[in-house]
Nucleic acid binder design. Structure first.
Lengths: 189, 189
DNA sequence: CTCGTTTGTCTAGCGGTGCTAGGATTCGTG
DNA sequence: CACGAATCCTAGCACCGCTAGACAAACGAG
C-alpha cells in the first residue's frame, strides 16, 4: 500500500526535477541548449525516462510555460487605490516578470508550443492573468471596449517585453516609455 | 572576359533563387520546414552549394529578414496631410505587412538571427523603417520624448503583430484595437 | 525462501538536422 | 586535343527528438 504511495511521490519529485532542470538550462543557456540528452544527463537518468513523464519535448516546454502563467499572475497583483498607479504597477510587474525570466516568458508567448489558446480552452492561469490586466485597464478607463482596450494594453506590454529582450530598445529609457504609456492610457476617456 | 561576367550573373541568379525558395518554403510550411536538404533539393543543387553563398542557415534567414526590412519600409510610406490619418495609415501598413508575410516578419523580429541591432550597426533599411515611424509619431504629437514615443508605438505594433500571428487576439476586433490605438496617441499632447 | 510476474530503466538504434572534407567532373584555355 | 582550374557532388561527422527491445529490480503468491 504505502509502497505505491512512495513510488508516486518519487515520481512526482522526478517530474519536478525535470521541469526545474529544463527551466534552469533554458534560463542560463537558452532553449536551444535544452536537448533531451542534456536534460536526461543533468537529472541523472536516461532519455526514455523523460518520455514516461511527458509525451515529448514540446510538452516539457509547455509545462514550464504553464507554470509561468501562474507566476505571471502573481507578478500582476497590485492593490492600489489610484487607477493610474495601479495600471503602472501592473505594467511594471508584467515587464519585470518578462525581464527576470526571459526563457519562461519566451516559452509562454514566443515559442508557439502545443498549448491551445483563445479558442475553446486557454489555460486557466492565463485567463487569470488576462483578467488582472482587464481589471487594471477597466479601473482607469471606462467600460466601453474594455476587452479591446485590454488586448491593446497587453499587446503593448508584450511588444515592450520582447523588443527589450531582443535588445532593440534603448535600455536606458525603459522608465520613460512606461511613463508615456500610462499617460496615454489615462488621458483617454 | 565575358565568360566571367556570365558566371557571376548566374551565381547572382542562384543567390536569388536560394533566397526566394527559402522564403517560399518558410511562408508556406514554416521556417522549421526550411532545412538545408530540402532547400538544396528545391533549387536542384546539393547542400554544399548553399554554403558557397552563405556561411550557414542563419545567414540565409538573416538575408531574407534584411530584404524584409526594405519591404516593410515600402509598406510604411503614407503621405497624408492629417497627422492622425497618417498615423493610422502607418500602423495599418505595418500590421498588414506582418499579416501578409508572417514568416518574413518572424525572421526579422522574433527569430533572433545573427543580425546585429541597436548597437553599432543596425541594418540601414531598419533605420529607414524606424524613421518613418518616428515621422508619423512626430507629426501627431509634439517634439519631446519623440524617440521614446516612437519606441512605444513600435512596441505596440509589434505586440499586435505577434499576438495576432499567434492567434491570441480576437481576429474580429482588429480594427477596433487599431482605432483605440490612434485615439490614445492623438489624445495625448 | 523461492519462484513468476510485473514494473521500471537503460542500451542501442532510427531517421532527421546543420555542416564539411575530399574526390569527381565539368569547363575554359593554350 | 590536352592540360589546369574552377565547380560541384558524394559521403560522412556529430548532434537532434524519439522508440523498440533487452535487461534488472522489486513485488506478491505459494
Amino acid at each position: 500500500m504505502a509502497i505505491q504511495q512512495r513510488r508516486e511521490r518519487q515520481r512526482a519529485e522526478r517530474h519536478r526535477l525535470i521541469l526545474d532542470t529544463a527551466r534552469e538550462i533554458a534560463e542560463t543557456e537558452g532553449w536551444d541548449a535544452v536537448t533531451t540528452r542534456r536534460l536526461a544527463d543533468r537529472i541523472e537518468y536516461s532519455q526514455p525516462v523523460l518520455y514516461s513523464h511527458f509525451a515529448g519535448k514540446d510538452e516539457i516546454v509547455a509545462a514550464v510555460a504553464l507554470e509561468g502563467f501562474g507566476e505571471l499572475t502573481d507578478s500582476l497583483r497590485a492593490e492600489r487605490a489610484d487607477p493610474a498607479a495601479r495600471l503602472a504597477a501592473v505594467a511594471h510587474g508584467y515587464l519585470r516578470f518578462a525581464a527576470t525570466h526571459p526563457a519562461v516568458y519566451a516559452a509562454m508567448f514566443t515559442m508557439d508550443t502545443a498549448l491551445t489558446f483563445a479558442d475553446a480552452e486557454s489555460p486557466e492561469p492565463l485567463r487569470a492573468a488576462f483578467g488582472l490586466l482587464r481589471d487594471a485597464v477597466g479601473g482607469s478607463t471606462g467600460e466601453p471596449d474594455l476587452e479591446s482596450r485590454t488586448e491593446l494594453f497587453w499587446s503593448t506590454l508584450h511588444g515592450l517585453a520582447t523588443l527589450t529582450a531582443a535588445n532593440r530598445l534603448r535600455p536606458t529609457h525603459a522608465k520613460e516609455r512606461l511613463a508615456l504609456l500610462i499617460t496615454q492610457l489615462t488621458a483617454t476617456t
